[in-house]
Nucleic acid binder design. Structure first.
Length: 476
RNA sequence: GGCCCCGUCGUCUAACGGUUAGGACACGGCCCUCUCAAGGCCGGUACAUGGGUUCGAAUCCCGUCGGGGUCACCA
């Protein structure tokens, strides 16, 4: 049924936690390919690990994808005609398929208990040898089986030979069947394990191309055996290089906090920056670094997905984020910026003043979090930094402060250009460089030494606040 | 340890047998400048290693070394 027409790709996360970076990139690559080739991108939740799967995780994954702007054509909350899209709701299909495999001699019931298996594995490990299930139940006659005894269904591997496939990213890959083992397909209640559920669903959902991380290369072999047994046409495969943490281990939730997509949101990273960063981890388009969502869709291909694992590089993420921050429309930054302020106990309303602050700060901040940090004095009376005060609010600075206070009080207009003129004139009158006037004022108004250009700062603060803070500094 | 994959600046990468091995982040210097940031210019650092193949190898083959992944009734 898989047509040579429009491709169907999927992202199939297991809901055992938040959306992590590796998953997000897998989703992105699949999504880009589907969008570029006018195919279908679908989401399937692999919630067959009853212990670890939670509804909250499903929620978190959907939220994460939506935040990144990765949408799905079929899947949870949007439906589709290949559903249900939760594996826990597809048990009937697994049951039917597993029984068919048993019937046709390609799978068998195994009555070995977990305890027996663990014991045998322990013996082998003690001898320093790898343990592989020996196929104890392989030739057990069905009639001997007591129907109420717990069992699992195992794959019955073919006699010999090799499994090979052509990976769209890695090229030719092969493995001898003797290096595989009769793995468990599903439990007695027909809840499938990864390889089995994957094959059954990818076929049922007519997936034509499976794109996933390289950690799944080894599961491709038994899956291919299953395709063969079932008489299904296998999809094409593309295995993406892994993303490594700073310690060069696979980026994981346990070891690496930065694996959490939403952590970056909380840190003030824009979704387009994260997307851009992540797409360049493993894929490239010549010398292009800043790549818009539209360009990604237009350019993405598996030919330029690399084969080597990439290390997470936070500096580059921040650099990209700054770029997108600079380019953003202030109105689009209002909501996330207010969120950042709120986390700092500050409040602000959307509006022209806020957008003015955004315009002034967005080009000098690396993240929204930093922007909020640098903008505190716009929303609350600042504490004066001692060192800054000692240097810029001393006796020597009083004439300049007093002069500018008068000039600002007297200025008929209070827009940035009028204020700039007032500063220049005052500096000139006092025979000082602009810096000698501006920096003390900056400290007086912000409590520190860093701010937007002085005239923008004063205009944004407004006459009342500016004069009040100047007066306070004069009395410091 | 078995098996699988991989190996270009510190990091992300370009190169698809012939380039002074290019770009970006980071780093250093200079310029600009009212602070910060941005921006501009300049700079250093890489083909893991040993053999082949070839007129010619970062590119192809083999070995070595190194890194990662995977070896569950997780996915």
């Amino acid at each position: 049924m898989t047509t040579s027409g429009s491709p169907r790709l999927r992202f199939a996360p297991s809901p055992t936690g938040y959306l992590h970076i590796g998953g997000a990139r897998t989703a992105l690559f699949n999504w880009l390919y589907a969008r570029r080739h006018h195919g279908t991108f679908l989401l399937r939740i692999e919630d067959t690990d009853r212990e670890r799967s939670t509804a909250a995780s499903v929620r978190a994954i959907l939220d994460g994808l939506r935040w990144l702007g990765i949408d799905w054509d079929e899947g949870p909350e949007v439906g589709g005609d290949h559903g249900p899209y939760l594996q826990s709701e597809r048990i009937a299909l697994y049951r039917e398929t597993a029984e068919r495999l048993v019937r046709e001699g390609h799978a068998y019931r195994c009555f070995c208990t977990k305890e027996e298996l663990d014991a045998r594995r322990a013996v082998f490990e003690k001898m320093g040898r790898p343990y592989k299930y020996e196929g104890t139940c392989r030739s057990r006659r069905l009639s001997q089986d007591e129907p109420d005894r717990p069992f699992v269904i195992r794959l019955k591997l073919p006699q010999g030979g090799a499994v090979r496939f052509h990976d769209l990213v890695c090229g030719a890959i092969r493995k001898d069947v003797e290096d595989l083992y009769d793995e468990v397909l599903c439990r007695a209640d027909y809840v499938p394990l990864y390889d089995f559920g994957c094959v059954v669903d990818d076929h049922a959902m007519e997936i034509s191309l499976v794109g996933r991380g390289q950690e799944h290369i080894n599961s491709t072999f038994p899956q291919l055996v299953l395709y063969e047994y079932l008489g299904y046409e296998p999809p094409r495969f593309a295995h993406f290089p892994l993303i490594l943490g700073p310690d060069r281990e696979k980026l994981s939730k346990r070891l690496h906090p930065e694996a959490d997509v939403m952590l970056h949101r909380r840190n003030g990273i824009l979704p387009e920056a994260l997307l851009n960063f992540v797409v360049r981890l493993g894929w490239s388009h010549g010398n292009d670094e800043v790549i818009s969502r539209e360009e990604m869709i237009e350019w993405f291909d598996f030919d330029h997905v690399g084969t080597t694992s990439g290390v997470w590089n936070p500096e580059k993420l921040v650099w990209l984020n700054q770029h997108y921050l600079k380019a953003a429309r202030p109105e689009d930054l209002e909501a996330p910026f207010i969120g950042q302020l709120r986390e700092r106990g500050l409040s602000a309303e959307p509006g022209e003043r806020l957008r003015g602050i955004l315009r002034a700060q967005q080009e000098r901040s690396h993240t929204l979090a930093e922007m909020a940090e640098l903008s505190r004095y716009f929303f609350a009376e600042p504490a004066i930094d001692e060192k800054a005060a000692a240097k810029f609010l001393g006796e020597a600075n009083r004439p300049a402060l007093a002069a500018i206070r008068e000039a600002l009080a007297a200025s008929s207009s209070f827009d940035a250009s009028a204020i700039e003129a007032a500063f220049k004139k005052t500096a000139e009158t006092l025979g000082l460089g602009l810096g000698k006037v501006a920096q003390p004022v900056r400290v007086a108004l912000t409590g520190g030494t860093v701010s937007p250009p002085i005239h923008d700062l004063v205009a944004l603060l407004g006459r009342d606040a500016a004069l009040a803070r100047l007066d306070r500094a004069l009395g410091y």
